[in-house]
Simulated scan of single mutants.
Amino acid sequence: MLKSFEHVGMTVSNMDRTVDFYCGLLGLRLHLRKKQPDGSDLVFLDAGGGMLEIVAPSGGAARAADVPDGTAGMRHLTFLFDSVDETFAKLEAAGVEVKERPRLAFNSEVLHKIAFLRDPDGIIIELAERKE
């Protein structure tokens, strides 16, 4: 029997920069950070309803590539906030790369407002809020 969503794994080029982004700007909480035997850095970040498992290989990593339409793969990570507008303004002021400014969600049965930005490695991050 399914209990819950646990985590999603991702690779990044710089762990310090990534932790600063996800914890400092988005509000995730550092659950675990350790060095792996192969020299890579590993963290688990608590997102409230699941975690991100992040690995930074010792040799770095190339910037993420978007998944083209019609290709299977992970398209973006979505985080739920009280206010997309307030969160977007904070991130934009911090110099985060903007992909799509806040707008009403097309799937209004689930979400009210969304926006899209990129993390330091180019991974697409969706900010979302639900109707009250």
Rank of each mutant, 00 (worst) to 15 (best):
L30W: 06
D82M: 06
G60Q: 04
D85H: 11
D16C: 03
V84C: 12
K35S: 15
D20K: 11
F79C: 15
L45I: 09
F44Q: 05
D16E: 11
L52H: 04
L32W: 06
G48V: 08
G27K: 08
M15L: 15
R29K: 15
G59V: 04
F88T: 11
H31P: 00
R75Y: 10
D41F: 10
A65M: 08
K34Y: 13
H31L: 13
F21G: 02
V19S: 12
G9N: 07
L45C: 03
V43E: 03
T71Y: 05
L25C: 08
A61E: 09
G27M: 12
L42K: 00
A89D: 05
N14Y: 04
M51K: 09
M74I: 08
G70Q: 05
L77D: 10
A64E: 05
F5R: 10
V12M: 05
K90E: 12
S40N: 04
S13Q: 10
L45K: 12
D20F: 06
D82H: 05
T71Q: 03
F81G: 09
A89G: 10
V8M: 05
L80N: 09
A72L: 12
R75N: 03
G49F: 01
K90I: 07
D69E: 07
E6P: 09
M10N: 03
M74L: 15
